[in-house]
Amino acid sequence: MNYLEIALMILQFAALILISPLITGIIRKIKARMQNKVGASIFQPYRDLHKLLKKESVVSENASFFFRLVPYISMTAMILLAAMTPFVYGGVIAPYSDVIAMVYIFTMFRFAMIVGGLEGGSAFGGMGSSREVMMSVLIEPALLISIMTLSAMTGVGFNITDISGSINAAGAAAISPALLLAGAAFVITMVAENTRVPFDNPDTHLELTMVHEGMLIEYSGRGLAMMETASMLRLTIFMTLLGTVFFPWGTAMTLSIADLALSVAVIIVKLLVIAFGIALLESIIAKMRVFRMPNMLTASFALSLMAMISLYVL
């Protein structure tokens, strides 16, 4: 591990964290454009976060010590995940970026938010958490199985960097029904996990629609800023995972300048394409009724299960 590699890793890790608000801004911008509105500038999320950081946080009297801890837990979880995901070259803590640990860190973040939601003692938090519980019971297994399919397909064990590396090396041969099915399941999980449109409307605070917002309702000031960054970071991580693990072709395998440049370009294109896809999805489909969601989620669960079964049976 020479110094260049370490420097590159830290740079890539910092870049991932910094660009996450930008990507959310871009998605909002594209969505606004599609609904032929001008929409805020793509740097608006940075300004929001900056504003929130300076504001004083108003906390409800019922909130306990855990209420103040939740933002920190979620930030830690997401930063750890950012360190693990292969972005341009490979995860910062490459040898330790175990796939199962990543899934459980996602659960850690979700668990902290669910419990945080119940803090305020108001109906919104309770409703948000209970709906999040329903969704997560169906999302988490789909996420676990889809990533596990990849590790079983490549057979290189559970390190995310090795997996993406081996799919990348296999090139076109890697495209198998298992990979496609797992990818589809992962896309649905991504949309559901980050509470994008078909499952929850991220832009409004309308009680009927909110799942993710419901849990954040009690937070303000620094707490809210951290929670917002954490969820933006989560979206970016999901997108990078989709980009560099499910369709990794183009990410740098070696440390040569040419490869790195190519992989930076490729990753930017991928992120933009995915952002465009999400924005397109959000402006075409309306939000589903809460109790129609399970059908969609079980569909994603079934997809991931079929992916794994096809891996073994075919």
Binding site: S60, Y72, S122, A225, M226
Partner: peptide
């Protein structure tokens, strides 16, 4: 990095 700022305790917004 994000040291806990000032806090004001208020009754939960109903």
């Amino acid at each position: 990095v994000v040291r806990p700022g000032k806090e004001r305790e208020v009754r939960t917004w109903g």
